[in-house]
Design a protein around this nucleic acid. Structure first.
Lengths: 165, 165
DNA sequence: CCAAACCGTTGAAATTGTCAACGATTGTGC
DNA sequence: GCACAATCGTTGACAATTTCAACGGTTTGG
């Protein structure tokens, strides 16, 4: 039943999505000075926009994430994906099921633990990952369109340092 | 014991919340270099943590956001809240209902447009907002614990510039 | 004055998040 | 070796959240 439902701009057309209100009503509100608020706003807004760009590949951010991790040198188990992506194991099942139906990954038995299954990309999986990265990149570029290149680099550096907990 | 400084989690509120995997498995994964991925991760993770700190006030991030905006010089209508917070109007109804039941805000008719209602904080609302800001600040400090003060300032500046679209 | 658009509200549907339990397998203490 | 707890993927149920259509009351524009 996982058929393409609705349409809209699912073509190679860039989705229109309000990034941040040009509204000057709350321009000086205390909320917009709160980094957590902004992070949450751009996080959800960014993934929504990325989902739009990924729709033509029948993927969402979570599928793109799993596919990307599956293409890393060391193929992950579903448990590792669950931990790293902070997704319930049952949600990982659904994501892997979808990717498997698209022929992008395969479940293989873990030689070291027959309880686990490692997620391995197919050739087509690696190919589609490249396209997905392109789409995600376009979405990211659009979100960061207000920043200069060095600012983007600084932001990335700070976020990575934030993640190094 | 000293309860003034310490956070007492009266209810099953997890003080322990995995901010970012110390797992070194995916330390060099391409995903962790993607600013959008990190932004989304810290956005949802940060709001989940903030929700935990706000639980003692019977608030969530969305209620805190609405309360904060209601306390701005110009009291907003529900439509303006809906637009700015990217929430469906029906969700704003639920949030305002909750805040109203807690006696923190009141719906007042908009003198300029009898269709709209402006959300005005009560005295207790402003008081609780102060406490909520304290809790949210603790959550934020915890998320940003890996950053130095100047780095925090830079991050805030970049996020605000990101929002100035 | 009339039609279209807008606001808040309600309710229903779809998506997502959370949690308990199960077979199969592995690790642990004895 | 052997019971026994713990783990992994999976399923199914349940709660929370998002999305959407429709409705009275109101405003706007022609």
């Amino acid at each position: 039943m996982t058929q393409a439902v609705e349409q809209d701009w699912e073509h190679p057309t860039p989705p229109e999505l309000q990034l941040m209100t040009g509204n000057t009503l709350f321009a000086d509100a205390r909320l917009v000075q709160d980094p957590m608020f902004l992070m949450n706003r751009f996080g959800s807004l960014g993934s929504a926009l990325t989902n739009g760009y990924l729709r033509q590949l029948d993927l969402k951010v979570r599928h793109y994430s799993v596919l990307s991790l599956a293409c890393e040198p060391q193929a992950p188990t579903q448990r590792e994906l669950s931990d790293f992506l902070v997704l319930d194991p049952s949600q990982v099942v659904a994501v892997v099921d979808h990717l498997e139906k698209l022929g992008l990954v395969e479940r293989e038995p873990d030689p070291r633990d027959r309880r686990s299954k490692i997620i391995v990309p197919t050739d087509r999986g690696r190919e589609v990952l490249g396209q997905a990265e392109l789409q995600a990149g376009q979405a990211a570029a659009r979100v960061q369109s207000n920043l200069t290149d060095p600012e983007r680099a600084t932001l990335q550096m700070l976020l990575r340092k934030l993640a190094s907990g």
